[in-house]
Structure formats: C-alpha cells, structure tokens
C-alpha cells in the first residue's frame, strides 16, 4: 500500500480576548491606531519570532545580574543567552547535555590537535568540524532510536560554542581544570536562568502585547550599570579583609 503524501502542520497563535470581543461587538468600528500598529497584526510566522526576541533583553538582564551582582564567571558575555535560545529547540536537559558534549568533544579535539601546532583559525576550524561531525552522527543515532532532541540541534550556536572550547582550554591550561569547570558551570547556570525566563508564557504574552515593557528592562539595566557595591562572590574572595576589620 502506498503512503499518503498528506502532511499536516499546526501553528499555535494567540489573539487577545479583548480584541475578539471588540470585533464581534463592533464589527464595523474603525480600527484604532494602536490596533493597526500591534504586533498581533504581523504575519503569524514572524509573530513566533518576536515572542522570543522581545524576551532576549530579559535574558541579557539575567546575565548582568548574575555577573555583576552575584559574580558568576561565564565564558564571554552573551554566550549564555545564545545557549538559552538554543535550549528552546532542544529542551533543557538535552541542551545541557549537548553543551557538556561540545565542551567534552571539543576539549578532546583541542588536546589532540595541540601536538600538531596549528595556527589559530585553522585550529578552531578543525574543532568546529569535528564537533559538527559528532553531532551529525548523534542526529543519525537519534533518528534510529527515536530521540528527536538529538536531531533538534540545528540552531545551536556551534561557532560560538567552538570559541568557548578554545577559552575553556586556555582557562584549563592557565588556571587549572577546576577554574575551567567552574566557568562552564557558571555559563550553564546563567543559560538555564535565561532560558526559564525566555520560555515563560506569561512574560511572552506580556511583552508581546506591551512591547513598551522593554523600556522598563532598559531602565533596570541602566540602574544595574551604576551598581558599584560588592558582588556576592567578593564576600568570599575578600573574606580575610572582612575578618581583620
């Protein structure tokens, strides 16, 4: 028997209840200015993007808070946010697994090619190539055993993760493995926190309906930029000084 070529696609989208009620009750009323300029009026496939995009500044706010108030070390400044975005495709558990996998595979490759004395750009390219090869194999395995998340790595920022591998290697070489792992854990923690915020339905609805909330986010970021108090981690770092006072 031949398989049917019929494919069904579903897209979930949101319409404010007030808008529907208004349309039903006043079908002939002219649209208000804000209705015409609402994000709800852009084509559906782009709405999906904007629901996420509007929350990315919140993700960067998390990075600012965890770095400047808590003092968590991370690889780069916005790498955790990119990871958080990638987690949307893979889910949290697999996403973290993949992050650990890239670091592990990338680090092994980095150690292996260290003996070849390659120059910087070709070396990063080799790491990137091997990492992508590994994930292609993983996707094939995932297809065989039916784990979709193994295949959903498409949007993972591999290039940035490869730079992360190089930074991880340098931190391990210069400051030791524990410092490297702490930084990796810090990055993962920040990525998870950002992901939780970005995935929050309530926040998505709020920011999509009222994009002007971004101004409030910017205001908090400015406030944070003028915070000159101690980071939590500094109470540990300078504890000897606190004792002597």
């Amino acid at each position: 028997m031949k398989r049917s070529p019929l494919v069904l696609a579903l897209l979930l989208f949101f319409v404010p209840a007030a808008l529907i009620a208004y349309r039903v009750l006043e079908p002939t009323a002219p649209e208000s200015f804000l209705d015409r300029w609402s994000l709800f009026r852009i084509p559906l496939e782009f709405q999906v993007t904007f629901r996420i995009l509007l929350l990315v500044p919140l993700g960067t706010l998390v990075v600012s808070v965890l770095r400047n108030l808590v003092g968590l070390p991370t690889f780069g400044i916005f790498m955790p946010v990119l990871m958080a975005l990638a987690f949307r495709n893979t889910g949290l558990a697999y996403g973290l697994g993949i992050f650990a996998g890239v670091i592990l595979v990338g680090y092994s490759v980095r150690c292996a090619v260290d003996r070849l004395h390659l120059l910087l750009v070709p070396r990063l390219s080799v790491i990137l190539t091997v990492v992508i090869a590994c994930f292609t194999v993983l996707a094939l395995v995932g297809n065989q055993i039916g784990v979709r998340a193994f295949m959903a790595v498409g949007l993972l920022p591999f290039v940035i993760l490869t730079m992360t591998v190089e930074r991880f290697f340098i931190i391990v070489e210069e400051k030791g493995i524990s410092e490297g792992l702490i930084t990796a854990a810090g990055s993962a923690a920040v990525a998870v926190a950002s992901h939780e915020l970005i995935s929050n339905r309530l926040l998505q609805d709020a920011f999509f309906t009222y994009p002007e909330l971004l101004l409030a986010v910017a205001a908090i970021q400015v406030l944070l930029g003028r915070y000159t108090g101690y980071r939590l981690s500094e109470y540990v770092r300078f504890r000897k000084l606190g004792e002597s006072a």
């Binding site: 400047n68 000159t228 108090g229 980071r231 300078f238 006072a245």
Partner: peptide, 9 residues
C-alpha cells in the same frame, strides 16, 4: 568599614 574595593566600584 575595611574599605575593600570591589570590581564594580
């Protein structure tokens, strides 16, 4: 009181 200077400051 001990006059520690933090990174942010």
């Amino acid at each position: 009181y001990s006059g520690v200077l933090g990174l942010n400051a």
